[in-house]
Amino acid sequence: MISKKVANVQEALKGVKDDMTFMFGGFGLSGIPENAIAELVQLNVKGLKCISNNAGVDDFGLGLLLQGKQIDKMTSSYVGENDEFERQMLSGELEVELIPQGTLAERCRAAQAGFPAIYTPAGYGTEVAEGKETREFDGKMYVLEYAFKADFAFVKAWKGDAAGNLVFKGTARNFNPNMCGAAKITVAEVEELVPVGTLDPNQIHIPGIFVKRIFQGETYEKRIEQRTVRQRD
């Protein structure tokens, strides 16, 4: 067994520098790498280019890096819940590239799978396709979108083992599996690091080969953005 286990978040983030490009798993605040983000705040690295579906909220998730003005560029599909984000974007401090959600997922997956680019129908005929190569297949138009290139991918799983195998829970899975192995170094943090051999090989979502470093996160707040409930009859 090849061990990917590191002692803590500090060791997991070794090599992180200013001006790097990072991927972050998560949809909204669900399934975000909370411990890696907290450590990036501590390290105070600047000039970051971040690929993440969302940009957190003002005081949580990637919003924490925005508060510290650590991010130069965001590539996202939806950024609607963050006032500081909006302020930095409108003032020009922050460069923002908005792309379709499925395109974001597929540009991660392409990087993971060794494809330089993909064709997608999403965004054809809109400003998202401006300046991009397009091509017709069977009478329908598609846009060429390139695989992402990133230095680190920070992902979060429910359970994992020292071999780097990962199991996700619920919709906290989202972009996390697609980002594993899509950057030079993939850092996985898990709620529970279990002994090797206890995860059923049939039930593993991401094989350890896609993960470079794994550690158990110290705490998880797992904040809920929209708490919706129904009444008991």
């Binding site: 919709t171 929209q226 708490r227």
Partner: peptide, 16 residues
Amino acid sequence: FEGEEDADIINAGKQT
């Protein structure tokens, strides 16, 4: 139901 919300199970509107 109230008390059974799970941060790991949401929809695209980020609702539990």
